[in-house]
Amino acid sequence: MRKEIYITDYSCVTPLGFNVDTNWKALLEGRSGVDLHKIIDNQDALYASMIDSEKLNEEFNRFFTQKDIPNFTRLEKMLLLSIKPLVEQHTISEDTAFILSTTKGNISLLKNQSELPEGVYLSKLAGKIADFFGFKTKPIVVSNACVSGVMAIAVAKNMIQAGKYKDAFVIAGDELSEFVISGFNSFQAIGSGPCKPYDKNRDGINIGEAAATVYITSNPSQNEKFRFNVLGDSAINDANHISGPSRTGDGLYASIRNAMAEANVSSEQIDFISAHGTATLYNDEMEAIAFNRMELQNIPLNSMKGYYGHCLGASGLLESIISMESALHSTLLPSKNFEETGVTQPLNIIRENQSAEIKYILKTASGFGGCNAAVVLEKC
């Protein structure tokens, strides 16, 4: 008999707040973290979703002693604040996994350096956070472009089912940096204004930053506030292009198909889709094709990028958390900035806050290198 795997707790740190409740309230009010920010000195300001550094430090000072502050980078502070509430609620044992999802980690440490700083290695970043909280197992890093957050959930699920661990803390984080902004600029993928996923007038992404953490276990206690069963997962690489998505949606289609098959749920049973929705021309079109191939075109769907921007390795985990909040509150959130359909295939884009019973959630992600991932969650 297959071991059931549950998400029973989560936390997040974003431009909209330093806990889930604050984020949920902001989202209900339609607030967005996307605004104009000047990130690179010799370039114009651009639209991005950025955590206020002063507020971040204030929050960090509330929970950590003064002597800790100089030892941590800005990203590390985000990660520490995200995981702390969960570590306080759940026991770390010899069988507890620590899984870090990130795309670029401490890439900002490379600025103006002639030699490679030790802290830029993702393994060192994971080890530093894990050691601080006393994890006893070797940290696991999931760094597969923008599907990392969704894949990290899958890695935890599969390792617990295989008996490698009894539970896991999955933490994800990425920050805004000159490196990332310059990279997306080179693809001419940065939007001229607040991003508009699936909209006719979309013209590119907004980069964002966040940290998020979930606790995953095969043996939930009786006093958990909620449980979400991780029913199915899949990750497929379509090997299409180093940065461009498949025009046929093959990889995403296969990921969704496999995840739903493992979950043993049909397209009609899915109540809500938390999509990737980057607001680039080709990504959104590819997703629309894949969803239609799976006959999911009538299922309510949103992208959270209009609220948070694209948070890279944190996106999949953060957006999974928000989708679970939607289920707990029986509320579908609109896909912000969407006005008129700009993809060739029909989709049921959510336009306003609306009540709905949500039991089965499909979360998808796609990224550079042709990677795609999907996970099916069930509210218990």
Rank of each mutant, 00 (worst) to 15 (best):
120 V>L: 13
290 A>D: 04
144 N>A: 08
98 F>H: 06
64 F>Y: 05
206 N>Y: 09
197 P>M: 08
360 Y>H: 14
41 D>N: 14
138 K>T: 11
256 I>C: 12
234 S>Q: 07
157 K>I: 06
122 L>C: 08
206 N>E: 08
249 G>M: 01
155 V>E: 12
371 C>K: 03
323 S>K: 00
200 K>Y: 08
364 T>H: 04
41 D>Y: 10
20 V>W: 09
351 R>N: 13
269 Q>L: 11
265 V>T: 11
27 L>G: 05
299 I>Y: 00
263 A>L: 11
375 V>M: 12
275 A>G: 07
164 K>C: 13
378 E>F: 06
277 G>R: 04
273 I>W: 02
345 Q>N: 09
83 I>E: 03
31 R>Q: 15
156 A>I: 01
254 A>P: 04
25 K>E: 15
376 V>F: 03
261 A>L: 14
130 A>H: 01
292 N>Y: 11
58 E>F: 09
177 S>G: 10
367 G>C: 08
154 A>E: 13
231 L>W: 01
76 E>R: 06
186 S>D: 01
20 V>D: 11
35 D>Q: 14
43 Q>S: 14
16 L>Y: 04
178 E>I: 10
158 N>T: 02
163 G>H: 12
332 L>K: 10
14 T>K: 06
236 I>T: 14
346 P>R: 09
238 D>G: 01
194 P>W: 03
184 F>L: 13
26 A>N: 09
193 G>M: 15
177 S>P: 15
115 E>G: 04
191 G>Y: 07
66 Q>N: 12
8 T>A: 07
173 G>S: 00
160 I>P: 05
48 A>V: 09
363 K>G: 03
294 M>R: 05
161 Q>N: 08
311 C>Q: 02
173 G>P: 04
368 F>K: 07
93 S>Y: 02
358 I>Y: 01
103 T>P: 00
135 F>E: 09
311 C>D: 00
331 T>F: 02
101 S>C: 10
182 S>K: 15
155 V>K: 11
94 E>G: 00
327 A>Y: 01
275 A>C: 03
279 A>R: 11
209 E>K: 13
114 S>E: 07
237 N>A: 15
352 E>K: 12
123 S>Q: 15
164 K>V: 14
132 F>I: 00
79 L>M: 10
79 L>W: 04
145 A>G: 05
82 S>F: 11
65 T>A: 13
229 N>M: 09
165 Y>M: 06
308 Y>L: 11
1 M>F: 08
60 F>M: 00
